[in-house]
């Protein structure tokens, strides 16, 4: 526990020292929400576009930060030999993975703190939001995507890792119903996409933030499985050097 705290402190310090990266992490979702919230270009399935967009953009922010940003940064840590150096300390792989997931969650708290007020200002209606459940969903989503990001960066060479993170991000973004409603996809793709963590996260955030009455059980099981299994596999398979 003490080593997780120590590593978490170091991760947060590094995030704070890379201010431009942090700014980008906060600004990109804001631009997405500001743009799509002001321009009527996306099909929202008959719902109010903002009720669809705000949880969707929050899900995109979680996926970007937990998977792509963390995965690429960890890839750089491999090329800088930071991971190898950490591997010579008593810090375990599991402790490193947990510390990194928690550091991402801290960034997401900041993202939510700027995104949700902007959504509200644009007209997103907050009614019947189940905040504890929403927070649990964010944690599970963070764990899922950080697990994927660390699984890739924990095994692949830095340059292949970079390509893999971006490629996977695009697939999960397009199929996950985050910005484009899943109803717009062909039937077989829409069905297959239900097994993706991006779909489960977007669905659950809409259910918990908007209280839209959609069933929670299936996406919760899907996201729970991703959120528990993938970080465990990432910790097991992580290479220090």
């Amino acid at each position: 526990m003490k080593r997780i705290r120590t590593q978490l402190r170091a991760e947060l310090m590094l995030i704070a020292r890379n201010g431009e990266q942090l700014l980008l992490t906060l600004v990109i979702p804001l631009i997405l929400l500001g743009f799509f919230g002001s321009v009527d270009v996306l099909p929202a399935g008959g719902d109010d576009p903002l009720q669809f967009l705000v949880p969707g953009v929050l899900a995109v922010a979680i996926m970007s930060t937990a998977m792509v940003s963390l995965g690429i940064a960890t890839g750089f840590e491999r090329s800088y030999l930071v991971l190898k150096r950490l591997g010579a300390t008593p810090l375990t792989r599991a402790e490193l993975v947990i510390a990194k997931i928690l550091s991402v969650f801290a960034v997401e708290v900041l993202q939510a703190a700027v995104l949700l007020p902007l959504g509200y200002a644009l007209g997103w209606r907050v009614s019947g939001t189940t905040w504890p459940l929403a927070i649990a969903v964010v944690l599970l989503g963070t764990s899922s995507f950080a697990g994927v990001g660390l699984l890739l960066s924990g095994r692949l060479r830095a340059e292949i890792n970079l390509a893999a993170q971006n490629g996977l991000y695009l697939i999960l973004l397009l199929l996950g119903g985050m910005i484009i409603p899943r109803d717009s996809l062909p039937g077989f793709l829409s069905n297959a996409a239900q097994a993706l963590p991006s779909t489960a996260l977007a669905d659950l955030l809409r259910s918990t933030l908007n209280n839209d009455g959609h069933a929670l059980m299936v996406p919760f099981i899907v996201l729970g499985a991703w959120g528990l299994a993938v970080p465990a596999i990432a910790a097991k398979r992580f290479r220090w050097s």
Partner: peptide, 28 residues
Amino acid sequence: MGVMLQGGGVYPSARVQDVLAHFCALHG
């Protein structure tokens, strides 16, 4: 065990005092 790598091993933007404090704490 103590290990000194052949170059690298530290994040470029990390400060000397923070890096040393971090590793001293990890080794406990």
